[in-house]
Design a protein around this nucleic acid. Sequence first.
DNA 1: CGGTGTGTTGAGGCACATCAAGCCAGGTGG
DNA 2: CCACCTGGCTTGATGTGCCTCAACACACCG
Lengths: 225, 225
Amino acid sequence: MGQIQSAQDGISAWPVSSALDTGLRTLRAHDPLIFEGDDADHLYEVIEGVIRVYKVFYDGRRQIMAFAFPGDIIGLGQADIYSFDCDALTFARVRTISKADLLRTVRERPELGAQMLEMASREITAAQSLSITLCRKSAIERVASFLCSLAERRRDIGTSQTLSVPMTRADIADYLGLTIETVSRNITKLKSLDVISLPTPGTVLIHDMKRLKRIGDCEVDTRAA
Amino acid sequence: MGQIQSAQDGISAWPVSSALDTGLRTLRAHDPLIFEGDDADHLYEVIEGVIRVYKVFYDGRRQIMAFAFPGDIIGLGQADIYSFDCDALTFARVRTISKADLLRTVRERPELGAQMLEMASREITAAQSLSITLCRKSAIERVASFLCSLAERRRDIGTSQTLSVPMTRADIADYLGLTIETVSRNITKLKSLDVISLPTPGTVLIHDMKRLKRIGDCEVDTRAA
DNA sequence: CGGTGTGTTGAGGCACATCAAGCCAGGTGG
DNA sequence: CCACCTGGCTTGATGTGCCTCAACACACCG
C-alpha cells in the first residue's frame, strides 16, 4: 500500500541514463538516500516510489523542497556537496548516476547536454513556482495547488479522479510552510466545499478538478463560509 | 546616483559570451527588457546596473523573483516563451545572446555546456533559498538576509561596509513577500538594534555584519524589544 | 504654491500559529 | 479477550505577527 505507480512511461524518461554505466538502489520507507554535506558525486533518477528532499534547520524546523516521483532527477542543482537531506517516503527504487561518468559522456555526445539543461530548466521553474506558492498564497490555496500538482503528475487529467497521497500531514505542512493543524483544517474545508473527499486515509478523491485548480491559482475567494 | 558598480571582475565572468556573436543593449531606469509571453530566443548577461525580474498576477500583485547584477544571466530557466517580465531598475547595459547561436556553439565546444549547467545549478540554488526565505523566516529575518545577500554580491566582506541599495521599499517588499510598511518597520528595527544605519537614502551602512548574518540565518531571537 | 512619489509611524483586524484535548486504528502485553 | 500505548489526524480556544487603513514628513517638480 501507499506505493506510487512505477514509471508509466516505460523504462526511463531520461535518455542520458541509458547511455551510461548506472547502478540501482532499493530503499524501504524512511531509508536515507543523501545526507547534507555528502560529496555530491552522484545524481539519482527515481524509478519507483517517492523520495523526499528537505533541509533541516538548527532549530529543528524542516523545509521539504521537493517530492521526487518516478522520472525525476535528484541532485542537478548541486555543486561539490549536497545542500539537503533526502530519504524515501515509500518503498522506492532509484538509478544512481556518476556525475564524472555523466560529464565524460556529455563531452562525447553534446546533444545530451541540452537534455540536461532542459531538466535543469524545469527544476528552476519548479523552484520558482514553489517560491510563489509559499509567498503569495493563502493556506487553502497552497493545499489546493499541492493537490493539483500531485494530480498533474498522474497525467490522466479529468474532472474527477482518485489520488494516492503517501505523505503525512506533517510532510505536506513542511512542504507548504504551514502547520499540520492548518493543513488538516483546510483539507476539511475543501471537503465541505465538495471539491474533494477522503475515501480512505492516504487517498484523495477529487470531485471538481476545475474548481480545485481555480482555488489553487488564487482565482476564487474562499473566505466566505 | 543609484548606479551599481560595473562588473568589477573584468569584461565578463561568463566565457560563453566571448565565443559568440553577441549584441549590447543600453537601458535607462524602468526601460522594459522582457515581457511575459515573448519568444524566449535570447539570454541576457548583465554588464552594468541592476535588472529586475518579476511576475505580475491577475490581481495586480507582483512577485520579484530576482535582482540581476553584473555577471548574472537572465533567461536560463526559460523554455519557448518567457514566464516573467523584466525591466531595468537603474541605468543598465546587457549583452544579448542568441539561444540558437549558443546551442550551435555548445555543440562544437561541449565544455561550454558544463559551464551553462553550472550557471543553471546556481540559479536552482538561488530559487530554493528564496523559497526558504519566503516561507520559514520572519519579516526581520527576511530583511536581514536580503541585506546580507546584497552585501555578499559586493564580495568585500568585512564587519562594516556601506551598501548601495538602488531598489525602493516596494521592490524589497515584493521580493521578500512583505508590505512596504513591514519592510520599513523592520529596517527601523535593525537601526535601533545598531546593526545598520542609513547615512543617505539609497545607502545602507552595515555596522555589525556578523550580527546581521545571524539574524538573517534565524539564529537570533529578535522578539524582545 | 499644490501635486506626486517615497518613506515612516500608529491603530486595529485577520489569518495562521500555538496550545490543548480528544478520536481512531494498529500494536503489544497481560 | 481487554487494558494500554502510540502515531496520525481532527477540532476548538487563544495568541501574535503581519496586513490594512490612515495620517504625516519630506524631497522634488511643474
